[in-house]
Amino acid sequence: MTTETAALPQARTPLERKRTAWRRTRSIAKHALLAATGAVMVYPLLWLLVSSFKPNSDIFRDLSIFTTDLTAANYANGWNDLQYPFGVFLFNSSVIALGAIVGNLVSCSLAAYAFARLRFRGRNLLFAIMLGSIMLPFQVLMVPQFIIFKELNWLNSFLPLIVPKFLATEAFFVFLMVQFIRSLPKELFEAARIDGAGHFRSYTQITLPLITPALATTAIFTFIWTWSDFFGPLVYLRVPESWPVSVALKGYLDAQSSSDYGSMFAMSVVSLLPMFLVFVFGQRFLIKGVATTGIK
């Protein structure tokens, strides 16, 4: 519509010209509104970033993000503010995230293959239970799970945070992969079956390679959720050397008697950086995942 009118600028009637002008005004107003909203939303994040480079005394004296007086001192100080250097917490978070990613990829894709491709007794019922479990408040599982892991002597280890992922407890990802496998052409599986491939081969050699986008979405979401998970580590990891960044950051808040906001901000930025990078490089998968499953 717009290209048509733009191609024939000289043949416009006054009415048409008025309409184009109106359209342009509306478009400008729209962009202005969107840009303003975006700026308000992102300003706190930029402020956090800039403040992490400001001398401590300046952070609350000057709230603007336009400054030239920048220093990396907060990063050097903050890194060693707690009992262990921040690198320890980053390492812990990475181990937990990696374990959770592997667990979710393996267990959820196995379950998804069964739900999407196989015909078996009780499928509808189990599928409904699986979907329903997404909506179950986890508080109702919290106490008994804690007792189980305590009896297993897993407290202060990463196992309570990783092992459940190998049991496909995050049903959301099973659902994501089911959706994806269902959209694959049936003929592929037919052909494989005729060629004598069993279900395991059809899972490893056809399904997995073809659902890599869903696997990528799963990996990215798992990373972001485990990286920012606070409740699990709070319950299961009580010794500082086992803390991930989320709980460690809370430690900065407690230790903030000297109001050293600079180093707290600096380590907040460090903890957000991996998530931000994953967002930048993986947002295609993130947005697809959100859009196809309808969950955050």
């Binding site: 939303m41 992102v42 989320s246 709980v247 930025v269 903890s271 998530m275 967002f279």
Partner: peptide, 11 residues
């Protein structure tokens, strides 16, 4: 979208 991704974090 970015805030909804970071919003659950302690930072």
């Amino acid at each position: 979208y970015l805030p909804s991704l970071l919003g659950g974090s302690v930072a």
